[in-house]
Amino acid sequence: MRLNFGPAAAAALIALVGSVASPAPVRAADVTLLNVSYDPTRELYAKFNELFAHEYQAQTGKSVEVKASHGGSGKQARSVIDGLDADVVTLALAYDIDAIADRGLIAPDWQKRLPDNSSPYTSTIVFLVRKGNPKGIKDWDDLVKPGIQVITPNPKTSGGARWNYLAGWAYALRKYGSEDKAKDYLAALFRNVPVLDTGARGSTITFTERGVGDVLLAWENEAFLSQRELGADKFDIVVPSLSILAEPPVAVVDKNVDRKGTRAAAEAYLKLLYSKEGQKLAAENFYRPRDPEIAAQYRDQFPKVDLVTIDDPIFGGWRKAQQTHFADGGVFDQIYSN
């Protein structure tokens, strides 16, 4: 308990600033990688980076430090395009990596370079509600009822938000049978959204900590994580009748690793995500593992959901979905401005 001088000294240092500049610390690692990722993967990659550092040192004898940057998936892709020096990107959806590939930083065939559409883990969209589900929210229909406040991030900047939106679209299309009615459904849903954060984590904090809203549309992993961090006695997870198979993909940023000479380490990093240990870590952090053996081990953790995929004809893949729904003047702009 004799640590009291710590904060006092730090505070004094802060107060005296204007005269002192301290250089950035020198890092000793042989290789430094930067993983630019989306919002809810913070906890997963904090653990995974340690695993990788350990494995890489064991295999090559070289020490490696992996730095991380997290934010809304679309925003992160934009940063990489603008020159953020990512060796690997691990984003929320394929379109955001396509956008980087379109600028020539990643080879166009990136999604075929690794197994399972380059998505080492999957997730889906579920509802997080207050304990006991006081508003009786069971399915997508309940989200458009008057007086229900729905929390979701902005689909323009957040990958999770785009999955949320498309899952709702798939449900409405199946239930009401026409695109016009699906638009009406989503327009009603977004009328119930009081605040659009830029990333998934921002929305989670808005719902869990600031106490805004009746239901959070969330990544399944994010919903489980907030239960773990803040207490299972505070929130319930509601699994809707239909949701979407979210495939968050990963890729090496070719132009950056070739310039920095870090390709070998970057490729090893992504490969480790597919290993048994990597898959286990993903499952422990509530991502659905691809590996059948690990998936079987964690079967009870993940509820069974009827899942539609992005390659379903109603979407036609990410490029088409992006163009139809989220580009300027797309369906989201139409319903949100009205």
Binding site: G18, V20, A21, P23, P25
Partner: peptide, 16 residues
């Protein structure tokens, strides 16, 4: 600590 160092550096430069 890294954030504090960076803030001190940036502040010293910009105030100067």
């Amino acid at each position: 600590l890294a954030a504090i160092e960076l803030t001190l550096l940036v502040t010293a430069l910009s105030v100067g």
